[in-house]
Design a protein around this nucleic acid. Structure first.
Lengths: 340, 340
DNA sequence: CCCATGCGTCGAACCGGTTCGCGAAGCTAG
DNA sequence: CTAGCTTCGCGAACCGGTTCGACGCATGGG
């Protein structure tokens, strides 16, 4: 059932059918109705491939995310969902691309084979070869996260520096003096993931500013690692009375470790960090945290990308979000005997 | 940089370039090398749209999942990840389609506009109009889940009936007599989601078989609903000593409700159900549960779909998985005074 | 020496749309 | 009545690949 078939049955030429459906040239009301009727009868829909070939637009955007090796976190899930939904609102489909690096086969497919009109990049690194590559090609892309050179690009992001700092100030205000930081896995930190770096940075600077004694840890993205990490924290410094974490997946393990160690939250130990509200609410006591607005980030990324696609050559834009800390039940005043 | 450009620079015809690259006809070693050299130099990759138009295959599979209205669960995330990864291994891309029903715009795009070669359906209902529609069209699709007529189709699924029954038997063996069932949200049950129905079914039958006193509940997909649901359970029958749940997202809330009510797990109350191990391990005590092998389900769905695409007309195949219950720490012998 | 064989390459048609230029009617105005 | 302008629809070219039939040329056998 191609456009020629429709044309034949409607008694017009193929081009007339095309114009009638796209509205790019006026068509008399009579023939338009006739064509529409045939189209409806046969349930005709133009082939996406043919259309893409002819006008150079695929109406698809690529969502580039890291391969599953490192397990997905809840945040990533929320991104994917909101990106897909927002894209649908603009009549774009979303093509998933599991891609770590620039030279990936998957990445090459997206770009080289022109499968997508634009791309959204997740899990940005401070020095990100994918982002650089896309920028060099002037390929329409929007990053979820900031590289080390944020002014030059299109992105939406969270101010992890400020968020981690806010957590520190919150704990310092409550009187905590010895605080641990639980980061994402070491391999991600070493790879230069921006949230891990900027979060660590914000934590360290704010802690210095407030004169806190701190230790920082990397922790695998799962409960067992969280538990092990907490044990290490208390072994390294039993005087620790609070922690800040960026590691959503480890949260349950951290709580378990505290329970095992006989520490009561928030009585003897406070926990806070940067975590999507949905996950902050699954632990008991519920986590006081800066809520990651994953849905908003995803939606805004799509909006920026669509804007960039509609107006090529427009100046780079970005959104930096700094959600406030939601006070729940996992932090409280420091009570332990202050350490020297 | 199209195939004509390559042909010109290599001093051959377009068809020769095509054959050299696809290998579908022999090409002399000399010209093949010359062509390859030009291709490498220019970094040429054939356009996916043009190729799709010419040979009728998009090398893309659609992943149809419900719109974000109902929040995604961790299980769905694992599916998406494993499907994408498995598809990449077969050189397929994955196009995401948020689609609830048959007539969705998004669904129409996938099929009508021929954007994908095949589809994988998530969140199957017992009477599923999408599955029926695809079957009627003989469109290559594989469902993750069984409809009410499982013999006719291609699917991979979990034997929720058997899994829920196994949970009941496990609890009955431990001496529990009054057990609650926490299902997915009522709206999903009413819509006919197969896991909710078959799980409820297996639970009810096994409980009758063992002569247990039971109550069944629906529960929203979030922690707050879980907590509320648990309060209701204890209000309705304070003698309840155990529960079985399919509701991953409510798990944290159920635990919180138990803690609030002063019930200790597994001392005075046992909890079990059907939950992916990753999430079963985040709660304390870790959940004894039938582990949903999301990764395996996703991978097998892709394998079946690829098989179906490679051999059109092959007889329908499916995989029904029944993972064993992993004993962790959330169930124990019933200790309360037995009820009449 | 000629013809059958087969290898390697080419040209053309095709996939299913979009878009441009043009021309046939129909209408108005001079 | 005709020149000039619109309105509407048509045909053809094009997007960038794939694929089929045919052809030129070297080779080998009779």
């Amino acid at each position: 059932m191609n456009i020629g078939e429709i044309a034949k049955r409607a008694g017009v030429s193929r081009s007339t059918v095309s114009y009638a459906l796209s509205g790019k040239r006026p068509v008399s009301e009579d023939t338009r109705r006739k064509i529409q009727q045939v189209v409806d009868e046969l349930g005709y829909r133009p082939s996406a491939s043919a259309r893409a070939l002819a006008n150079g637009r695929t109406s698809t955007i690529g969502l580039v995310f890291p391969p599953a090796g490192n397990h997905y976190t809840g945040m990533q899930l929320d991104f994917i969902g909101s990106v897909v939904e927002a894209a649908a609102a603009y009549d774009y489909d979303v093509l998933l691309s599991p891609s770590g690096v620039d030279s990936d086969r998957s990445f090459q497919r997206l770009l080289g084979e022109r499968r997508v009109d634009g791309a959204i990049l997740m899990e940005i690194r401070l020095e990100d070869d994918r982002a650089d590559h896309l920028a060099a090609l002037d390929f329409p892309a929007v990053a979820i996260g900031r590289t080390a050179h944020p002014e030059s690009g299109w992105w939406v992001g969270l101010d992890h520096t400020a968020l981690a700092a806010a957590c520190v100030h919150h704990l310092a205000d409550l009187g905590h003096r010895r605080v641990a930081f639980v980061n994402r896995p070491e391999q991600l930190l070493r790879a230069g993931y921006e949230s891990a770096h900027r979060g660590l940075d914000g934590f360290t600077k704010a802690a210095a500013e407030r004169g806190l004694t701190v230790r920082t840890y990397c922790c695998g993205d799962d409960a067992a690692s969280g538990q092990a990490c907490l044990e290490r924290i208390l072994r390294d410094d039993p005087g620790t009375t609070a922690l800040v974490t960026l590691n959503e997946a480890a949260l349950g393990g951290l709580y378990r470790g505290l329970a095992r160690a006989g520490r009561h939250v928030p009585g003897d130990f406070s926990v806070t960090g940067v975590v999507a509200s949905r996950w902050a609410e699954t632990v008991t006591p519920q986590l006081t945290a800066a809520d990651v607005p994953a849905e908003e980030l995803g939606r805004r990324a799509v909006e920026l990308l669509v804007e960039r696609l509609d107006q090529p050559g427009a100046p780079a834009r970005h959104h930096l979000l700094t959600p406030p800390i939601s006070l729940r039940a996992s932090t409280g005043p420091a009570t332990g005997s202050p350490q020297p």
